[in-house]
Design a protein around this nucleic acid. Structure first.
Length: 500
DNA sequence: TTTTGAGTTGTTCGA
DNA sequence: GTCGAACAACTCAAA
C-alpha cells in the first residue's frame, strides 16, 4: 500500500487504461487520451467472468485471447509500458489497482453488449463516488447504437434503411495513430501470469489448425487488411461467396477482439477513390451488417436467448442429440455442410456463405433450435461476438430481424455446386471425398447404392445423408405451416378487418 | 393518421 | 435449357 505522497503533482499520478474488446495501440482513444495527459500509464486487462450476466468466452476465443494479449503486451513493452493482467470482478480489481498505485484516472473504450454495459455503468458510478476521474470513449462501432434512430425514434429492424441511414451520415472520423510516447508506470504492481489463466487447450490440444490459420494481434490485423485491399478486394463483389477461394477479408476475429477498428478499415477504403467502386460498396455493406447486429443487441439484450420474433416461441423444434452431434462433427452426409463444419472445428472459422448453408441445414433440415447452433458457433468460432452470432442465427432460422422468409430453405447440393463448382473446398476439408469428381462431389450418397454396392470412390467412410433433402424440406415447410396455424389460433388480436 | 413501397444472400415447378 | 411465378403475408420506415 504505497499511497502517493501528498507532494506529488497531478501528472505524477498514473492513469489506468482498461483493455477489453480493444486489444490494440492504434486508434485506441482511451490509450491516446491517457498518453496525452503525460501521466504514467497502467494498461490493465481484467478477465471478468464473475460479474452477473457475463457470457464466458468460448474455447476458440479463449485461445485467441491468450495470443492477442501476448501480442499486446509485447507491443506495449516497445512503447515502455507493461500490460497488467488480473482476473475477478471489474470494479473490485480497479479499486485494488487504484489503491496500490495512487492512480487518479481510469479510461476505457466503450462496450455495447448489455452485461458489459452494466459492468461499465457500475464502474463509472463507483469511480465517481470515489472522486476518480474516468471516461469511456467510442471506438468499436462506427455509430453509437443509441444515436442511430428511425424517423419515429425507434431502432432499426430492417437492414436496408439502417444502411441508408448509416451511409447518409457523416464520413466516420479518421483513425488515430499509435501514441508516440507512453510513460510507463515505475512502481511495482502485481500481475497474473497469462499462462496461469489456462486459456489454451491442453488435453486434447485442438488448436493446431488455429495456429496454422491465424496470427492474433494488431500487427497481423493490419497485414490482413493491407493484403485484402491489395488483392481480394478487386473482385470481392463477384467472388466473396466462393468458399473455395481466398476472397474474403478474414478480418472478423481481429474486429471481434478490437485489434483493428471499423474506422481504420473504412478510412482505408475511402482512400481508394472510385477505382474499386462496387467492391468497396459491397464490403462496406458487410461492415454495416456487423453494426446492425450490435444495434440489434443493444436494443434487445436477450438476443442470444429469445426469438426476436416471438411468434417462433411456438415453433416445434425437434430435440435430436444424435443429429446435432452429427452436424457438429461434420457428418451429415451433405458435403458442403460437412466441409464447413470441419473447417470450423479445424480452423475456428467458416466462410460466410457456408455458415448460412450449415445453419439453414441445422434449423430447417434437422429442425433443431437455432440456439443449439448458436452455442456451438459461440464455442468454436474465433470471431464469435455477442451480437453477430445470435443475430445471424436468428436471421437464418427465420425468427430474426429482417430475416429470410421461411420458405427460403437452402438446397445444400445446389449451394455446393454453385459456390464450390470444382469441389475444391469440399476436398480440402473432407478427405473421404478427395477422389470424387466435381460433378458428383456435392451429391450425398444414396442410401440404397451405398448399402448394396459400396462404391470405393464414394468411400464407405463418408456418412450416408442424415435426411433426404426433399423430405426434410417438406417437413420444415409443414413445421412453419403449423406455426402460422398456432399463431392464428392463439392470437388474442382480431385479424385486421377487411376494407369494404 | 394513413398510405405506400419495400424487404441480403432461394428453390421449385411448370410452361 | 430457360424463364417467370409462386412460395405468405407482414412489418417496417418514410412520405
Amino acid at each position: 500500500m504505497t499511497a502517493p505522497s501528498s507532494g506529488e503533482t497531478e501528472t505524477e499520478k498514473p492513469a489506468i487504461v482498461l483493455f477489453r474488446h480493444d486489444l490494440r495501440l492504434a486508434d485506441n482513444r482511451a490509450l491516446s487520451a491517457a498518453a496525452d495527459t503525460g501521466k504514467p500509464v497502467i494498461p490493465l486487462f481484467i478477465l471478468d467472468e464473475v460479474s452477473p450476466g457475463i457470457r464466458p468466452l468460448g474455447g476458440a476465443r479463449r485461445w485467441w485471447l491468450h495470443h492477442s494479449l501476448a501480442a499486446l503486451d509485447k507491443a506495449l513493452k516497445e512503447l515502455g509500458a507493461t500490460l497488467i493482467l488480473r482476473s475477478g470482478q471489474t470494479l473490485a480489481i480497479v479499486d485494488d489497482v487504484l489503491e496500490k498505485t495512487g492512480a487518479d484516472m481510469v479510461l476505457w473504450n466503450r462496450r455495447y453488449d448489455p452485461p458489459a454495459i452494466e459492468v461499465d455503468t457500475a464502474l463509472k458510478s463507483g469511480l465517481t463516488d470515489r472522486g476518480i476521474a474516468s471516461a469511456g470513449f467510442e471506438g468499436q462501432l462506427l455509430h453509437e447504437p443509441s444515436t442511430l434512430k428511425t424517423g419515429s425514434g425507434g431502432f432499426y429492424k430492417v437492414y436496408t434503411p439502417f444502411w441508408r441511414a448509416l451511409a447518409a451520415g457523416d464520413e466516420p472520423r479518421a483513425p488515430l495513430p499509435t501514441p508516440k510516447d507512453i510513460r510507463g508506470f515505475e512502481g511495482t504492481l502485481a500481475s497474473d501470469t497469462l499462462s496461469h489463466w489456462k486459456l489454451l487447450p491442453t488435453k486434447p490440444d485442438w488448436a493446431g489448425g488455429l495456429r496454422e490459420s491465424w496470427q492474433p494481434g494488431e500487427a497481423d490485423a493490419q497485414r490482413r487488411l493491407a493484403d485484402f485491399i491489395d488483392g481480394a478486394l478487386e473482385d470481392y463483389a463477384d467472388k466473396r461467396d466462393r468458399p473455395d477461394r481466398e476472397n474474403t477479408s478474414r478480418l472478423s476475429p481481429h474486429l471481434a477482439h478490437g485489434e483493428i477498428t471499423p474506422f481504420q478499415v473504412w478510412h482505408v477504403l475511402s482512400g481508394l477513390g472510385d477505382r474499386l467502386g462496387d467492391n468497396v460498396l459491397k464490403f462496406r455493406r458487410e461492415l454495416a451488417w456487423r453494426e446492425f447486429a450490435w444495434h440489434l443487441l443493444f436494443h434487445n439484450p436477450d438476443l442470444a436467448s429469445a426469438n426476436f420474433n416471438r411468434d417462433f416461441d411456438a415453433f416445434p423444434w425437434r430435440y435430436d442429440e444424435t443429429a446435432l452431434r452429427a452436424w457438429q462433427d461434420g457428418k451429415t452426409g451433405y458435403p458442403i455442410v460437412d466441409a464447413g463444419m470441419r473447417q470450423l472445428w479445424e480452423t475456428g472459422w467458416m466462410h460466410n456463405r457456408v455458415r448460412m448453408v450449415a445453419a439453414s441445414f441445422l434449423t430447417k433440415h434437422l429442425l433443431t433450435d437455432w440456439r443449439a447452433g448458436e452455442a456451438w458457433f459461440w464455442d468454436t468460432l474465433v470471431d464469435a461476438d455477442a451480437a453477430n452470432n445470435p443475430a445471424s442465427w436468428q436471421w437464418v432460422a427465420g425468427c430474426g430481424a429482417d430475416a429470410a422468409p421461411y420458405f427460403r430453405i437452402f438446397n445444400p447440393v445446389l449451394q455446393g455446386e454453385k459456390f464450390d463448382p470444382h469441389g475444391d473446398y469440399v476436398r480440402s476439408f473432407v478427405p473421404e471425398l478427395a477422389q470424387v469428381d466435381a460433378d458428383a462431389i456435392h451429391r450425398p450418397a444414396a442410401k440404397k447404392a451405398q448399402k448394396s454396392a459400396p462404391d470405393v470412390k464414394l468411400s464407405a467412410a463418408y456418412p450416408v445423408a442424415l435426411v433426404d433433402h426433399r423430405e426434410a424440406r417438406q417437413r420444415a415447410l409443414a413445421a412453419y405451416q403449423q406455426l402460422r396455424g398456432a399463431h392464428e389460433h392463439h392470437s388474442d388480436q382480431p385479424r385486421k378487418r377487411r376494407q369494404t
